[in-house]
């Protein structure tokens, strides 16, 4: 297809540069219920030995903590639940860090906030 050449790059650049809070519904509070956006997929990349979050135009490399957080984002658990779940695994989980991480991904449209609890 034709215009693929510039699109890929432009989008990538724009996605990475987009600031937190630039979009509307990305406010992430303790009661938000985040989940991966339907166009995103997380997997472990054996080549980089890291988890990656993949979309049609975006690639995000995650560290283990980031991957652990996203693994429990199911659209039912609240951010508070997620922090609690991670407390079992990590000595210290900073609520603020988790929220910031998720807000950033929400700003990139990688993560969505579920409004209704049982919309699956």
């Amino acid at each position: 297809m034709p215009s693929i050449k510039p699109i890929r790059t432009e989008k990538r650049v724009r996605t990475e540069k987009r600031a937190v809070g630039e979009r509307g519904s990305t406010a992430m509070t303790s009661s938000s219920r985040p989940k991966l956006a339907s166009h995103m997929r997380m997997r472990f990349d054996p080549v980089r030995q890291q988890h990656v979050l993949l979309g049609p135009e975006s690639v995000v490399v995650l560290n283990q903590t980031g991957a652990d957080i996203l693994a429990v984002c199911d659209g039912r658990r609240t951010v508070a639940d997620i922090v609690a779940a991670l407390r079992g695994r990590y000595d210290r989980v900073i609520d603020e860090d988790v929220r910031l991480f998720l807000a950033r991904l929400a700003a990139k449209r990688c993560v969505e906030i579920c409004v209704e609890i049982d919309d699956e």
């Binding site: 995000v60 980031g66 990590y90 000595d91 989980v93």
Partner: peptide
Amino acid sequence: PPSTEAPPAS
């Protein structure tokens, strides 16, 4: 664990 100065960012 996620460090305080660097959040578990992408």
